[in-house]
Computed example of a mutant assay.
Amino acid sequence: MLNRAAIIIKYKQPAVDWINDADPYDTPGISIESVNSESHVYLIDHDDAEVLDDWIKLNYEALFFDELMGWYTDESLWPKKRTLSLFKKWFHIECHTIILDTVGTPIVSEEI
């Protein structure tokens, strides 16, 4: 069992609408189901899970950046005002506090 909690970001329809509207290639629209079929998982300090709202307030800008960068690296396509309110309208946060490591080998951190 790891001494971490995991947050998983799930997209809400307004975020999916942005993905489709901002698409510079006019590819066929993406659905909320396909967007949420793979999600980013962020490990946080286990104690932060108890005060998740406070943690989100402190870290939503970095999370927002990471999620938008995953879709379009051209920041001119991004919303100009990325507020906490917009973040909450676009994303649902799931928090999981029991993380079990079933592999049994050391966890290795890789730089991105």
Results as ranks from 00 to 15, higher is better:
Asp101Leu: 01
Asn36Ala: 11
Glu67Leu: 15
Leu77Asp: 03
Leu100Trp: 06
Ile98Cys: 02
Leu2Asn: 08
Trp90Ile: 03
Ser31Leu: 12
Leu84Ala: 02
Ile30Met: 13
Val51Thr: 10
Lys81Asp: 15
His96Tyr: 13
Asp45His: 10
Glu111Tyr: 00
Asp47Val: 12
Phe64Asn: 06
Ile8Arg: 13
Trp78Val: 01
Thr102Gln: 07
His92Phe: 07
Tyr60Pro: 09
Ile98Trp: 11
Ser109Asn: 07
Asp53Gln: 10
Lys88Ile: 01
Gly104Arg: 08
Lys88Asn: 15
Pro79Val: 05
Lys89Tyr: 03
Ile9Ala: 12
Ser85Ile: 07
Asp23Asn: 15
Ile30Gly: 10
Ser37Asn: 10
Leu77Pro: 12
Glu50Gln: 05
His46Arg: 12
Glu110Ile: 07
His46Cys: 06
Glu75Ile: 13
Leu52Val: 04
Gln13Glu: 15
Phe87Arg: 07
Gln13Ile: 02
Val108Pro: 01
Ile112Tyr: 05
Pro106Gly: 03
Thr97Val: 12
Leu63Val: 11
Trp55Pro: 01
Phe87Trp: 08
Ile8His: 06
Gly70Pro: 12
Leu77Ser: 06
Asp54Arg: 08
Cys95Lys: 09
Thr83Gly: 05
Asp17Lys: 07
Lys89Gly: 00
Tyr11Ala: 15
Tyr25Asp: 15
Thr102His: 11
Asp47Gln: 13
Glu67Tyr: 11
Lys57Leu: 06
Lys80Trp: 00
Asp21Tyr: 09
Thr97Met: 07
His92Thr: 14
Asp74Met: 05
Tyr42Phe: 14
Ile112Trp: 04
Pro106Asn: 07
Ser34Arg: 13
Ala22Asp: 05
Ala6Pro: 02
Asp17His: 06
